[in-house]
């Protein structure tokens, strides 16, 4: 039997807003299971309750109803956080600490110490590409660098589960690619990942399963390939096709009872273009 890394049962959260009679229902009766080893993407428009759900999972916010478990330990208990790494949205750390000091601090909170801690912190800085900025204070870090140190901080306790709230927000495309590759690497190591992002193409590349939230409710959930494939369609990309060939194709298709739905020129997407351009720079 596989264990659930995350188990959310009938979770609701109401915020009491000053000067308003009825409470704001940020999460409504949410139930969700993420088996260990899976990469799960939580999607939804702004204000749909994704971050709130994550905060409840980590015991930062207490639910109004329902409960959530991490590896079968209720999120209300501190020990549920032993095996989790969390990257909050727009992370912000102590300005007066350097990158290395930040990781040493969080490492200590995870119970590491001595040489293990030092080595681990250096390794994490390297992993997220901040080795050069290790001795600079975070006050001088850019947004993307803060995001990276946030990721390093989430990883330092060697978690079995990673909860990442918009890990690529503010990170440049190359860095965002690196983070994607990192997540795939974690997945290969068997680490469960709960991810929330507005970068749909990235989510598509790395997630096994997604859930879509809207106004606090889970409105769709399933395996990506199941949700997205149109079983009755096939894509065909041709090179150097003459107009007459295309006409022949369309005719043949019509003869066999099929239909050409769309005829367009594929174009390299902006992200790939951006990466190509910026890679040429020294």
């Amino acid at each position: 039997m596989s264990i659930s890394a995350i188990s959310i049962q009938n979770l609701s959260k109401e915020f009491h807003v000053p000067f308003r009679r009825e409470p704001l229902r940020a999460v409504k009766n949410l139930s969700l299971e993420v088996p260990a080893g899976e990469v799960y993407g939580l999607l939804g428009p702004n204000g749909s309750g994704k971050s709130t759900t994550m905060k409840i999972l980590l015991g930062l916010v207490s639910p109004s109803a329902g409960s959530s478990f991490l590896f079968n330990v209720n999120s209300r208990h501190v020990e549920s956080r032993e095996s989790v790494g969390f990257l909050p949205e727009n992370p912000y750390f102590y300005k007066y600490l350097t990158g290395l000091e930040t990781l040493l601090f969080f490492g200590k909170l995870c119970g590491l110490r001595g040489k293990t801690l030092q080595d681990k912190a250096r390794l994490m800085l390297q992993t997220v590409g901040l080795a050069d900025a290790a001795d600079r204070r975070l006050g001088g870090y850019s947004k993307g660098m803060l995001q990276r140190i946030g990721l390093a901080q989430a990883l330092i306790g060697e978690p079995r589960l990673l909860v990442l709230d918009e890990p690529t927000a503010g990170v440049d495309p190359a860095g965002s690619h690196e983070i994607r590759d990192l997540i795939l690497q974690f997945k290969a190591q068997g680490i469960t990942v709960l991810l929330c992002s507005h970068m749909l193409n990235q989510v598509q590349e790395i997630c096994d399963r997604i859930g879509v939230m809207n106004r606090g409710e889970l409105v769709a959930e399933g395996r990506l390939d199941e949700l997205l494939s149109s079983p009755n369609q096939t894509e065909l990309v041709l090179e150097n096709a003459s107009p007459s060939l295309l006409e022949t194709c369309a005719r043949l298709a019509a003869e066999s009872g099929a239909r050409v739905v769309e005829n367009r020129k594929p174009h390299a997407d902006l992200e790939r273009f951006f990466l190509k351009i910026t890679r040429q720079k020294p």
Partner: peptide, 14 residues
């Protein structure tokens, strides 16, 4: 304000 509280309390810190 800095949300450092989140990062700290998300660790096994009571």
């Amino acid at each position: 304000e800095d949300r450092t509280l989140y990062t700290i309390l998300a660790k096994p810190v009571s």
